[in-house]
Computed example of a mutant assay.
Amino acid sequence: MHSDAAPAVRSRTVTEGPTPSAPTWDPQQYLRHAGHRTRPFVDLLARIPDLPTQAPRIADLGCGPGNVTALLADRWSKARITGYDLSREMLERAAEEHAGPTPGGGSLDFRHADIASWLPEEPYDLIVSNAALQWVPSHPGSFAAWINGLRPGGTFAFQIPGNFQAPSHSLLAALCDTPRWRPRLAGLGARYIHLLEPGEYLARLTELGCAVEVWETTYYQMLTGPDPVLDWVKGTALRPVLTALGEDQEAVSDFLLQYRDLLRGAYPPGPRGTVFPFRRVFAIARKEN
């Protein structure tokens, strides 16, 4: 993780398929908690400053099923917006439900790309990422190139989960490292040690000559239904594990039962649901004119 001098804006060819370690995504499962998952992006969006052009060019890195990408068009109705993602499943859902012209005369489209290697191919007014950079160990090393790809006065903004020391993740990591699961799942529950603390993001982005705002928020979410924390992580943190176990349904069932029992102890239900604290880290970096 380092912030080298920014190269010139240029394009890069992306890989045309996921790497073997890339998790398989389930848009329907992910969207089961769409309200809670969308809220941090709405909070981020509200604090992004005005963009330098009336019809801005916007990139959404790790757009997923496109539901939050569409919110960008609500604020910048004339924008030409492209969502980038590695998951074919997510992109198909996004294109089906959100692609096309926008009411203000802009457009919304979706493209396959690995954001670990994505570089701006033209000047952008806004590069934004919602709950995706935690999957990219090298992401701080891309900050210089992404900011270099902004117009003067443009903005780079992101939010990522900051709850990787929480029981939902520490229990998953410990279970993956037990003798039963280690041969197949070693390391899959502890993939986020590359994430920086808020102060480190502030320092790195400031060093790149930006006006920077960084903050964190812990959302205390009330999840409902049977084993709601398990249902939540099935859409995110569990994806690498489920991908690794593949079609071995017996192993999937055994793992989920063990993990479910651990989560029940860590997140006991109350009379109106299960409280699930969820820390998020936000950053907005505006390129100086």
Score class of each variant (00 low, 15 high):
53 T>K: 02
78 K>T: 14
98 H>V: 05
253 S>Y: 00
61 L>P: 00
57 R>N: 04
113 A>G: 09
78 K>L: 14
134 Q>L: 09
174 A>C: 03
173 A>G: 12
139 H>A: 10
264 R>E: 08
226 P>R: 06
128 V>F: 03
76 W>D: 13
264 R>C: 01
44 L>Q: 15
201 Y>M: 11
235 G>K: 03
9 V>Q: 02
229 V>T: 06
76 W>N: 05
114 D>P: 07
247 E>Y: 07
233 V>I: 10
259 Y>C: 02
8 A>S: 15
21 S>I: 05
168 S>V: 15
45 L>S: 13
146 W>V: 00
106 G>Q: 12
10 R>M: 14
51 L>E: 03
128 V>K: 08
285 A>F: 02
248 D>Y: 09
80 R>G: 08
200 E>A: 15
261 D>C: 06
62 G>N: 04
275 V>I: 06
149 G>Y: 06
95 A>G: 13
130 N>V: 08
161 P>H: 06
42 V>W: 13
125 D>T: 04
39 R>V: 15
203 A>H: 03
201 Y>F: 12
177 D>G: 06
126 L>S: 05
213 E>N: 07
165 Q>E: 11
250 E>C: 00
101 P>I: 01
180 R>P: 10
145 A>P: 06
135 W>P: 13
136 V>Y: 05
99 A>M: 03
58 I>P: 02
215 W>H: 11
134 Q>N: 05
287 K>Y: 02
98 H>W: 11
158 F>P: 04
58 I>D: 03
200 E>W: 02
24 T>M: 15
80 R>P: 07
150 L>A: 00
182 R>E: 11
216 E>M: 12
121 E>P: 13
105 G>P: 03
146 W>T: 04
5 A>Q: 15
86 L>A: 13
256 L>M: 02
55 A>H: 10
